[in-house]
Design a protein around this nucleic acid. Structure first.
Lengths: 209, 209, 209, 209
DNA sequence: AATGAATGAGGCTTCATTCAT
DNA sequence: CATGAATGAAGCCTCATTCAT
């Protein structure tokens, strides 16, 4: 049932992308060889080429997958009851979910790649814009958003929120490996919440986790 | 006098590092070949090996140079009359000075590299800590710092300030090439100032350029 | 009846060889992949291996098929009423029939292959010998053949005839694609006839097409 | 002296082309690996790429070298006292000189390549045209050329001469390796002379070797 | 001090061939 | 009989590094 006529191909793609993510996060795009990916996926090198035209296509597909993941998170965030909870969902997903450091290293590499690969740049810019628009929208429709400090407009608040999120993610790659994902998450949330509290003039210490 | 026994070597190192910076920013560390660097510097490949043990040593020296630059900026910032002006000096230097996008792409790559090269990670972490400590100190000794919003402590304020700075830098690599350095700088300052105003409960619109 | 136990296999072989001919003529033996052939034949790669042991076997079968075609043409030529008409049949078939340039490219490739593959060399030599013997025989039994210029013997005449035919075929692969098969044929026949006229001291301008 | 500042590069190119010729003749263009060439030349693979952009460039350079050789032969032929001697020089050079079978296999491969590589086709067509024009010219200025059999015009005579030469060359690749270069040459000349005698109505048996 | 020719390991990619379904 | 997913060896090419000059 799970191996119906169309799925194996999709499964393979996912399997390869999963392996690629591990490798990319560990070594970076351009220091990961196709052999690395195939070994991580437990398949032969040649097989990758049945599912991806070349190495760049794997990178592009990874970026695309990242986009879809972000969109899914955004959807989840939209359904949260309060603005605060939405932000926590988004923030947590953005840099802490799944494999902890893995994710961050990959995203930083993705931005590095974007700085020279226009195709990737377009995609990342698109992801970012969509996510920011989503948050801007959430803010607009929330009570807190309309009474923000210093009369900051929703899109300005969103801009600050995302800047800090990216900044935390970037710092994440510097943390020693010894720190657990939980610790990492806790420390980063602390900083983020400090900002939110400031932006929305609220007391949020006790709300979550 | 200028061509004494020790200086040419230092000049050469700087010449090579300058060329390397151009290449690294343009293509990234691992897609820049030694030949690229030698061509950019207008020298032969072999000569690079007289001043650097290998490619990794060039990258490390590069990172070290970045550290020294940041420290110099910090020194300048310390001498500014007000906290605000200090921040502007720091922020502008951090991501806008010199070649605009060039710098950002290099720093993002540096963080990406740090995520897998402990030596680089240590160095970058050190730079960051030094700079943050410097800003924390500046805040502590300033009037505004002691009356910050929500009773945020100096090091917490500093943390937010750097997170946003990194976040803006990261976003920088996505901007289309067409934007001028000045535009880039203006937009980023706008966001940063919005944060500072919030943090220090001040009106700063008209203070600077 | 047509799908008896043995026929489909033969059909398949022919189908595959037909596809192979198209590919070989277009790209050459060693730049044609098994996938190219299977795609051209509209079947799967694996199926080719049910009918041919490997790629070399396909090439060998191809050469064999070429041999059979030449023999068939020789048979037709033998039944022509005059020597001249025999030669025209042979010549036309040799390099112009079917797809025009396609054929030539294949034959040149076949000779190239023969220069390093003894099995192919034997086969091609055999084809050539058979054809030349056939023509020698035709000449011996014709009126013109016995009164040839300069007392050239039938086998010497045959040798010259075939040398020119091969030479024209070789030149054929250089002709720009734009020329039609008809034009090609006309030009080549012109040269060949000039030789025949010379060899057999005859006037043949008006005899044929 | 022989290794002056500019020559080594040229020597290397020649060395590589020499090795390539051996390999190409032995295995054909597309079955010769860059490693084959480097091994034959006694150098490393990478070094080839200092002198040629890629494998195709080696093939193109080989073709170009062939063109220059033919032109040199044509020049020599032009200086011969009689038409007959000119033809012998040309013919001998065309397919027998140097390494005997080596040459032929290479040329047949070159034509095969020309049938699908327009760049090579142009070059080969150019060589052929130049050579044929040269011979046409030789014929025009010779006594025999103006009294040719059947009123054949110089360019028609030239066309036949080259067709036979190509035809003999093509046949050459079928000859068993055991035959010596001298035997090969003798047999081929025999056929060619038979044609020339016919074309120019002359007795030439005893003139040459 | 400086050059750049030379090396060879290693990366990307293709393709003949096999085999489970 | 037929498919096409899978393998892995081998080919092309790049590039960090060395060394004779």
């Amino acid at each position: 049932m799970s191996s119906s006529s169309l799925e194996p191909a999709l499964d393979r793609r996912e399997q390869i992308l999963g392996a690629a993510m591990v490798c990319f996060a560990k070594r970076g795009f351009h220091q990961t060889s196709m052999h690395d990916i195939s070994a991580e996926a437990g398949i032969s090198v040649g097989l990758i080429y049945r599912y991806f035209e070349n190495k760049e296509a794997v990178i592009a597909a990874m970026a695309d997958r990242h986009k879809k993941e972000i969109q899914a998170v955004l959807e989840r965030a939209r359904r949260a009851p309060t603005l605060l909870e939405s932000l926590e969902i988004l923030f947590t997903a953005h840099c802490c979910e799944n494999s902890p450091k893995v994710q961050s290293a990959f995203v930083v590499d993705l931005y590095a790649e974007a700085s020279r690969n226009p195709q990737i740049a377009d995609l990342v810019r698109d992801v970012l814009q969509t996510a920011m628009d989503g948050v801007t929208d959430l803010i607009s429709r929330s009570e807190e958003g309309t009474t923000a400090a210093h009369d900051l407009k929703p899109h300005e608040l969103s801009e600050l929120i995302f800047a800090v999120a990216r900044g935390m993610l970037m710092r994440d790659v510097l943390q020693p490996q010894e720190m657990t994902a939980a610790e990492r998450r806790a420390r980063q949330l602390e900083v983020a919440r400090r900002l939110w509290r400031l932006l929305f003039q609220m007391e949020i210490e006790s709300v979550y986790a």
